[in-house]
Design a protein around this nucleic acid. Structure first.
Lengths: 212, 212
DNA sequence: CCCCCAGCATACCATTTGGTACGTATGAAA
DNA sequence: TTTCATACGTACCAAATGGTATGCTGGGGG
């Protein structure tokens, strides 16, 4: 961890310090959950003191929200690259997305956990502010996938009809549940196996070869 | 909450007191998570004092484990009833299971949360004892479903081959993820919709009508 | 009838936690 | 060169938390 904010202690680098705190939060929450991630530990991981922490964030809840935003933005960028050109066939882009997701849990040092899932599971029942934010983020991702599915329907009239948003939510749910199960079993390959089922299910809709 | 253990304060009812503590733990953890569920709150909900708590459980982790065991036993009994006779067609029993799961989130006062999922999400990365217990419980459920699927394969040779355990893990993952998403969106119907996709996927395997 | 131990209740404790008060260093502007 | 707001660091605090020590109490065995 210990970003450059640690070394350049008294050197002014506000953005770097803030980012270090946000990334430390992401890292800690993903491994231990929200409540087990204390402000002190965030500071220690980021290499700054409490004074710095509360200079940037009025409360612990505020770093959490910043962390969620930063995390989701990062994921959008990551998967966005994987998907390739927007002009490509939506079905191909969908395939690339599944490949990208499977690949993301196979990265050696990477934890098998989604920040959004961790936070939502822990706080959805008790903190409505955070719950709403998680809902918005989940919805964003689902909308994107639903868009791909809708475009795929238009370009490749499916053999069986389906509701894009409905299917997108199913994929999102399966993804979250897969991470949960994989982490519990300590077997990232479970995610890949589940994504293969998702792929098979999707291909069931479009199974007659369609014109380019 | 407040079970009869509250009223019969000085009345000796060891089993009732223990059960009250376990059920209070289940209830609280399902809504707020593990770390947010304090020993004090468990005691208050169960209507007993800390002295009683530590008389039955050496530590907080021990109630948690007892809660997990009790919860899983309760679920096995609940769904066991829904499935009907063991001699029935496994495919029919599978359908009943999906119906039972969908129904379980529609119960009016019921929370949209699985104790196992909550605990696993929060502790799998930090507490190996509890993680292992959760893994065993998840595996138990998966084995059961895999057994049904294997029996279904035997009785109704499927059009497309599949690995029962693999599919069972997928269903388990989808279930957990659906609860997570439904809780975040505050929409239990999402679970039902996702289970319909599961049903459709399964029927894809057995889609040619087979003899009774 | 008395004793004694399981089954609680009460009071307390050390540590941790989120948060505050306030001091100090830095660099850019005047 | 002085000024001054920003960007931190240090020292502290009240509350919460998991856990302990110890005392009381009722009912079943002797």
């Amino acid at each position: 961890m210990k970003t450059e904010a640690a070394q350049s202690r008294r050197r002014r680098a506000p953005e770097a310090t803030r980012l270090a705190l946000v990334e430390a939060t992401i890292d800690l929450v993903r491994t231990a959950g929200v409540h087990a991630t204390t402000v002190d530990r965030i500071c220690a991981t980021a290499g700054v003191t409490k004074g710095a922490f509360f200079h940037y964030f009025p409360s612990k809840e505020d770093v959490l929200e910043a962390a969620i935003l930063h995390w989701c933005q990062g994921r959008v960028e990551l998967y966005g690259r994987d998907l390739g050109d927007t002009a490509d066939d939506p079905l191909v882009r969908l395939e690339r997305m599944l490949d990208g997701l499977a690949a993301s849990v196979r990265v050696p040092g990477e934890k098998t956990a989604c920040l959004l899932g961790m936070v939502a599971q822990e706080l959805a029942g008790s903190n409505n502010r955070v719950r709403t934010l998680c809902e918005r983020m989940l919805e964003g991702w689902t909308d994107f996938v639903a868009g791909l599915l809708a475009e795929a329907k238009r370009r490749h009239p499916p053999a069986v009809d389906f509701d894009p948003r409905d299917v997108a939510w199913m994929l999102n749910s399966l993804w979250q549940g897969s991470l949960l199960a994989a982490k519990t079993r300590r077997d990232p390959e479970l995610v890949a196996a589940n994504l293969e089922h998702a792929r098979a299910y999707l291909s069931g809709f479009f199974d007659k070869r369609s014109p380019p």
